[in-house]
Amino acid sequence: MEQAKYIFLSLLFCSCIYADDEALESLGEMEVYTPIYAGEEDNIISFQDSYPLKKPGKIYVYGSYLFVNEQQIGIHIINNENPAELEYVVFFRLPGNVDMAVRGNYLYADHVGDLVAINISDLRKPVVSTRIEGIYSYAVMMPPEPGYFECIDRARKHLMIGWEKKIVENPECYW
C-alpha cells in the first residue's frame, strides 16, 4: 500500500506539472467536472421527512439523537433512543453543509459559507434564529473522479456545493 500511495502521489505531482504545461492549451472541449455554486434557491433551508444516505460525512451525537452530515447537502437527524433501532426523524437541507454542533435547543451549522443557528426544540418545526454571513470558506473538495476539471473560483469557493459534468473548453485543473 505504501508503494501504491507513493506512486499515486508521484502521479499527482507529475500531473500538476503537466497541467501547467502550455501543451495543454490544445485540449479543446471536454466533458469534465465543474463546480456547482450555491444560487438564490440554495439560500433557503428546507426540511423534509428523509433523504437517502449517500455520502455520510461528519457525525455528531446529542443526547439520544445522531446528526449525520450528507456531504454538501444537509444533515440527517436520527433518533437513537433505542440504539438497536435507528429511526430517521427529519432531514435538514443545508446546501454546502460540512459541519455542525448542538447545544440545548440550538443547532449551529454552516450553510453556503454562513453560520446559522437553528432552533430545533421541535425537530419538525425548525426555525432559523440567526444567520452570520460568510464566516468562512472551507467547503472545498476534489471532483468525484480524477482527471481534468474546471478550476474552483477562489472568490466563490465558499459558495461551492458540489460538482457536475459539463462541456468545458480547455479545462486547466487536473488531479
Binding site: I59, Y60, M100, A101, Y108, A109, Y136
Partner: peptide
C-alpha cells in the same frame, strides 16, 4: 448542554462559546 463531534470536527462548543476553525483561523462566537 452540548453534544459531541468527531476528532476532525471544525465546530466545537466549550462553555458559552462556539469555536469554528476555518482554513487559517480560529473563530470565536
Amino acid at each position: 448542554l452540548s453534544g459531541q463531534g468527531g476528532s476532525m470536527a471544525r465546530f466545537a462548543i466549550s462553555g458559552n462559546n462556539l469555536y469554528v476553525v476555518g482554513e487559517s483561523s480560529l473563530l470565536n462566537y
